[in-house]
Design a protein around this nucleic acid. Structure first.
Lengths: 244, 244
DNA sequence: GCAAAAGTGTTACTTGTACACCCATGT
DNA sequence: ACATGGGTGTACAAGTAACACTTTTGC
């Protein structure tokens, strides 16, 4: 662990890196998977779109930094903050990923329900939701980070209960199914989807209230909330063919 | 991204972190899943066991640093280096995980076949393979890192072709099955295991040579090598009950 | 011969899939 | 009335698990 360190040289006094977090924040809005972008105000990449993020402070972990930045960028706090899924994706450390100096970035993927406002008290010059398909030409290596996060989310819906993270506190099974269809880009059979979800213990729980009648035309649907389970047994497979 | 930076203060001139890599290197030796440990020669935790690792240099990425450290620690090079699976696990960044200063560590999980020698030209005072069940009381937060890596490997065997990474260049289906039984700690039905493996396209390929007769008593087994596929469709499920 | 390991086959059962069908609501 | 979405039932195909059986080696 220390052969490459010259004798008498404190190994902890060299090779300083800057450490940042980058956030790939996803939501489902208007039947489309969207990501949160900010417009950079400074060089490098001034005026370009980028993933939200920022520096890790001395007294906090990367997870805490990610949660703080997310709150600043989206205004997510209080009861909403509890309904948020935040997960470490991986760390990007290529030398040269920032033209100025060595910056190592811990990337996170976040899943949030459809929020009323695109951003809260953020400090970026501009923040907006954008369909992930249109998120190209981002600053730094953020195209790559977003693509990795997208694939991670797609895969995780198969064997975890993460789909509920895209839904509000109370949701119908039809809304949950739309989340899956949107993220995977396929059409699912409604009766079979129902059965699988209800057969997975702890995936969803029925809310002890009355069903709602949305503005939409159709029979009133029962309301559910996210259950306590984290993983899905058996997994909810995503079919390969078939586009919606 | 810059609201917390005082105006006129270069955001890239503050909060220096040290960045290291830590490696959870696994192999299957004598029907037991083992991890590579080194004995620390310096404070803190002098004399304690730890995961191999080291500092990321200025001109390399974390992946390159991990590969370099692994080569130093195990003597893995040349043809063996190609047969190695190295994968980023996650990044550990709790303040206080190193008592001296802020160290952010990018952890990797590595899977290697049963190597002839425990270590090559490593620089640690001591290195050895140890059954993962006995790897407790490690330095820093390495207990946690090893546990996370162990669970990752267990899970990844289900839906990827990673099992072959534990095997030599040529192996029998019986050896591959032992890998799964060892990592999962369960007994598998041999006929069914065969069928699933052979039915997964690109998982294994038959070697165009003669079967071998090992010292073991039994019929000679056909030899296979790792295929080109990375993911497994359908997955190879791990049963829940039953201990071997 | 016997134990151990490779390899093949068969059966019972569980699961997934693709539908058909009815109900409730808004326009 | 009818389109739309919620909810239930069912027949068939596909996959899985469990086990019996044969073959080939070493001792």
């Amino acid at each position: 662990m220390s052969a490459e360190v010259p004798p008498g040289y404190d190994p902890y006094a060299f090779e300083p890196f800057a450490v940042t977090v980058d956030l790939a924040v996803f939501t489902v809005r208007e039947h489309v998977l969207q990501a949160l972008l900010i417009e950079r105000g400074e060089e490098p990449y001034a005026g370009r779109w980028a993933l939200p993020g920022g520096f890790v402070r001395r007294e906090e972990s990367a997870e805490e930094a990610a949660r703080r930045e997310l709150a600043e960028e989206t205004g997510l706090s209080g009861p909403n903050a509890a309904r948020l899924h935040l997960e470490q994706l991986r760390t990007y450390s290529d030398p040269g990923r920032d033209p100025r100096m060595r910056v190592v970035s811990v990337a996170f993927a976040a899943l949030v329900p459809d929020l009323p406002e695109p951003r809260g008290g953020g400090d970026a010059t501009g923040a907006c939701w954008r369909p992930v398909a249109d998120c190209t030409g981002l600053a730094f290596d953020h195209d790559r980070i977003l693509a990795d996060a997208h694939e991670r989310v797609r895969a995780k819906l198969e064997y975890t209960c993460l789909g509920t993270a895209f839904c509000p506190a109370a949701f119908t099974l039809g809304e949950l199914q739309q989340v899956y269809e949107t993220v995977w880009g396929v059409a699912l059979d409604r009766p079979n989807f129902r059965r699988k979800v209800l057969a997975s213990p702890g995936f969803v729980e029925r809310m002890p209230n009355a069903p709602r009648r949305t503005g939409g035309r159709g029979a009133p649907a029962a309301l559910y909330r996210a259950g306590s389970a984290a993983t899905l047994q058996p997994p909810l497979m995503r079919p390969e063919g078939r586009t919606p």
